[in-house]
Nucleic acid binder design. Sequence first.
DNA 1: TATGAATGAGTCTTCATTCAT
DNA 2: CATGAATGAAGACTCATTCAT
Lengths: 213, 213, 213, 213
Amino acid sequence: MNDMLELLRNEKNMTPKQIEIIRAAIELISEKGYYNTSTSEIAKRAGVAEGTIFRHYKTKKELLVEIVTPVITNFAAPMFAEKFVDQVFRTDFAHFKDLMYVFIKNRFEFAQSNIPLLKIVMQELAFHPEIQDAYKKVFKEKVYPAFNQTLDFYKEKGELQNLPNETMIRLIVPTIIGFMITRFILQPDKDWDDEAEIRKLITVIMGGVGSKE
Amino acid sequence: MNDMLELLRNEKNMTPKQIEIIRAAIELISEKGYYNTSTSEIAKRAGVAEGTIFRHYKTKKELLVEIVTPVITNFAAPMFAEKFVDQVFRTDFAHFKDLMYVFIKNRFEFAQSNIPLLKIVMQELAFHPEIQDAYKKVFKEKVYPAFNQTLDFYKEKGELQNLPNETMIRLIVPTIIGFMITRFILQPDKDWDDEAEIRKLITVIMGGVGSKE
Amino acid sequence: MNDMLELLRNEKNMTPKQIEIIRAAIELISEKGYYNTSTSEIAKRAGVAEGTIFRHYKTKKELLVEIVTPVITNFAAPMFAEKFVDQVFRTDFAHFKDLMYVFIKNRFEFAQSNIPLLKIVMQELAFHPEIQDAYKKVFKEKVYPAFNQTLDFYKEKGELQNLPNETMIRLIVPTIIGFMITRFILQPDKDWDDEAEIRKLITVIMGGVGSKE
Amino acid sequence: MNDMLELLRNEKNMTPKQIEIIRAAIELISEKGYYNTSTSEIAKRAGVAEGTIFRHYKTKKELLVEIVTPVITNFAAPMFAEKFVDQVFRTDFAHFKDLMYVFIKNRFEFAQSNIPLLKIVMQELAFHPEIQDAYKKVFKEKVYPAFNQTLDFYKEKGELQNLPNETMIRLIVPTIIGFMITRFILQPDKDWDDEAEIRKLITVIMGGVGSKE
DNA sequence: TATGAATGAGTCTTCATTCAT
DNA sequence: CATGAATGAAGACTCATTCAT
């Protein structure tokens, strides 16, 4: 269940109207951007009155943040949730590249289910300090620690070069994200063999950080 | 001479006021984004009347495009100009990784000299078809052909795996761009050892596309 | 009930603010012309915010058209409505000149009640294709057919010369309109004996188109 | 020689640039109206710099007035010039309707040669007090006296009804002008038999003001 | 005299936000 | 809770006019 809207409906208990507002906002903002989308347009597409939006969200920006924050949290978080880290250490994954495969596969599917949302995050991240804060927080509190633990684990197993974790993260993460941007945003209509692409991606990453034995 | 403003002053022969307008626009838009920057603000910072902007650029958007287009052209183009391609084929570069080094170094420096401009390009690319067109044109007419020629050359020399060029480009380019974004935008204040980072980057790339002899 | 404002209030069911906007617009535009009247002025005189105007009328031009179209329709139309044409053929009017009298009298009173509006129509007709369209439509669909029927009727009765209807219309209509312009716009302050003027006018018209027996 | 431009070139001694400005202004304003024509457009079409216009005419309005005033003067005046009035009293015209014929014919040709200018006069008369003043002056000082003299002359000859001159003028003038508007502005493309139309027009007028012997 | 870059007041229009119902 | 009419501040853009060259 990767669909964020589903998730929002459940976690916060939203009224149907609220859901419609969020859905409309996501559609419109991801198509045209935050500044090209008016609240009246959102209201119209959501089938509610303009005032209704402001009953639920004090400002237009708050609506944006409300949309974007859970995406950030959920894009980064779940893989680093207890369950997953457990698996790693219960050595469910014999090799780092197996872990990478599951990790990338999982995030890939998440991205696929939430393209409009991720588009919004990427586009608006640059301009809204509130969003940047959420992003930094998640990165610092979730991604970073989880990565550290994981990388240390496989370093000790001799599967990774003895590079600083930070360096490795800086090599791995942009490579993965770069791939997804190409895949979902720049050339979404190309005829992709996703499975092959992901394997190739892992080769690149391992070429970069894997131990050269 | 990497500074685009310098370049603009020379190529198009701009009046001093025009230069000021461009300078102010670059500053403000790269800080706050296109939609958060008003023409009156640009005028104020440029020290001209608001009307003066519209004497030179029919619309605000035209100003943006005028700023952004040369950046795109110049970010992509020069490395693929005759001179450079010549070098490659006069085998000035014994190995693909030597070429990569010079290439990345060169584009790195260009980026460094034009951070605000590149920020603008990245941020606004998503919303302005006019900018997308410029980008597509350059990529198709310059980047792609040059890359193809080059990759074929080193493939024949046995230095690269026998992958489709497109695949290689898709692995190489986002990796480089991802690095630069991290370096200049996400963590500009970190204490970077650029030389080392670039070498590492090349290792990653070679791990991905280099031949496994 | 000749007052157009009254009519607007009823037909379209307008809010009080909307009425005020229309009233203010009519006053100002008829005094100073469309291009010399700003929307902010209209708003001020109407006692509403400028934005309110644009909530009801998408553009300033749409406001103008909304004001002017019903005038055109109503200036031309009612006399040619069923009721009136019926009267003619039930020979309520023994002679063409009796019909003319009622007709002119009726339109005269309409004009008198709507001077500012008619001023606007005349002044702006030249520049706004939208208004011209409305005018052409009404003339073609209402005025012309009604006139034709009527003129034919009295021709057969031998009261009119055997001229083409078009020629007669071209003689009659400008003469009447010319009179009203003189009466209400060029010399409104003169001490008019309207009854006498109208009779004189009819003499002229009959001199032009009446049969010379 | 009815062309006003010719006249302007001679009376005032204008530079070629000035003539071009006037010509361009007439063209543009008569097409699109005063408020829809910018001085920069006029300058462009005239092939001069914007500043040049303001060297010759202090304001845009002054340019308009400069264009329009001589038209008014010349439309009204010449027929009432000495020469013409002389003719009347040297009884060059046996009957009033002969005079009318020459008069209408003459003004008809003037109109035909100056349609754009007359269009401008009509359209802008309503909004510019300066133009109204010119019009009133000419009417009062030229048209009215000349008409008076003439009408009195033919009244004495028993050719006209014993109506107040003012009344007659009010019947005659709008009828003639109405005809010209129909002929040149409302239906310029119709296939007109001008000679016949003018004769018809005179019949109407005579029907209105001619003595009923 | 002619130029045309520069001006800045003024215009129409948009839109997030409020509030009485 | 929901509505949607009303708001008014702010924005992009126009254009008559000025003035240094």
